[in-house]
Design a protein around this nucleic acid. Structure first.
Lengths: 253, 253
DNA sequence: CGAAAAGTTGAGGATCGTCAACATCTGTGG
DNA sequence: CCACAGATGTTGACGATCCTCAACTTTTCG
């Protein structure tokens, strides 16, 4: 699973392979998106909201998040980005970035031009359908987030976020257990689920006292996943995807 | 702008034409999505969350909304659907509907099978790119909603919702003013922006006393749009779309 | 080792929810 | 045309969740 220069295979390919088998041609098409690399340190501002956007990114390593700042200076974290994600698709429809982009760990990004999607749209209806499907999964995850922000209390919000992160990590790390490193500050967690850092601290403490999670180092372990899923009404949107409607291949393997 | 049988042209075509010029072939492709009609009365449950999904809808007339019910019975309205919208794209990636669907006015829907998108994906890269772009606009609208739910107070939430509805209506009703019929109950408004009907009533009253809106009949008039935009930090995501990255046409006019 | 960042804990306060009574609107049948 | 019932909207009193401010502790990293 490693290419001949010793590097690990593309996370994007790995993520897409979680859902369908890819032909060599399709892998080649995708790898064109990852020809350039750009390293970023933890906490780097990669893009401000409102800037002109001329390229998208594939995340090769690290965690990042999109955010907006409100008039009073507070921040809302809009979505988390993990290795294998394509960042910036929604901005394609606009001339200026709708969200800021910041890294929460050291990260490696692969920038590619907007036009880089032309190849894919024109040469592979399967990849087109797959990219649309990934977009649909993301869409549903946002709906879950809306539900969370609109109607759930602090404990459920944070528990839900932790479960979502875990399931998302599993799509590129197939046999991950229930423990993972959580490189988010409590400020960032709060900004993601609409709470303050103070209340995040209290609530994480409560979740730990209740025996739902265990924290040590920068790591989190989900102790009673089933019960936490129940408490937070969580559904794993990443687990499986319906590809039955995909068009017959115009460019068969 | 009317076809020979006297009916108004497709809202879907009208909405897409807001953004690009369409060829006759493309209009034909799209019209295939609207071959069947289904009438629904106000308040009809069209689909429950969790049901198997075998088709999507084009909205021909009326307002609808997607929602979910929480464990305690409360409801979160996830998105509003207007004439010209395609409902169900996100569900394509799943075997079961992720949201319930209900009408808030009498409505006319055009159901079409999942496979109905094949034609479009395979025969028009322009329409494919356009559908993706619409999806991206929707995506950004959801991000705005997340920001609203996570960090804005009741007055801004409701004001923002009203502005969003107005701008959305303008995409299919080009020369609409600042007044429109609002066929949502205060329960539904509350479920959309994460408040209770009681607080919606209070807040609408406050917005009216402040001179931002005027209510009469079932209609709302935005009185000081600029100031309300400022108060609610509103940005019109529907107004314009960047189509510059669209692939060169494989099937030119 | 020391400074800055991140996390914890307490006290008091603001926003919004809950419950309840009442008012108004809407549509239906007599 | 009126009567009535159910749905919808309004208003008040009270309470819960979460925020703000602030002091303090722990961790991280140069």
């Amino acid at each position: 699973m490693s290419s001949d220069d010793g590097s690990v295979e593309s996370c994007l390919v790995e993520k897409l392979r979680y859902y369908v088998t890819l032909s060599d041609d399709e892998v080649t098409l995708l790898s064109q998106l990852e020809e350039n690399e750009q390293e970023e340190a933890r906490g780097a501002m990669i893009r401000h909201g409102g800037e002109p956007v001329d390229h998208l990114f594939v995340v090769k390593a690290g965690w990042l998040y999109g955010y907006t700042i409100l008039a009073d200076g507070r921040r809302q974290v809009l979505q988390l980005h993990f290795p294998g994600d394509i960042i910036g698709l929604p901005d394609l429809a606009f001339e200026h970035a709708t969200t800021g982009l910041q890294s929460c760990t050291d990260a490696v990004l692969c920038p590619f031009p907007k036009a880089g999607l032309d190849n894919i749209l024109q040469q592979s209806t399967t990849l087109t359908a797959l990219l649309m499907s990934i977009g649909m999964v993301d869409h549903v995850v946002l709906l879950d987030r809306i539900r969370l922000l609109g109607r759930m209390d602090a404990k459920a919000r944070i528990g839900h976020l932790l479960l979502e992160i875990m399931c998302r990590l599993r799509t590129t790390n197939r046999n991950m257990g229930c423990e993972f490193r959580l490189p988010l500050t409590q400020d960032e967690i709060g900004d993601a689920v609409g709470l303050t850092n103070v209340y995040v601290s209290r609530t994480l403490g409560e979740l730990e006292r209740d025996g739902f999670i265990h924290r040590s180092d920068g790591r989190v372990k989900i102790l009673r996943e089933d019960e936490l899923r129940e408490l937070t009404d969580f559904e794993d949107r990443y687990f499986q995807m319906d590809t039955s409607w995909f068009p017959d291949r115009v460019n068969p393997v």
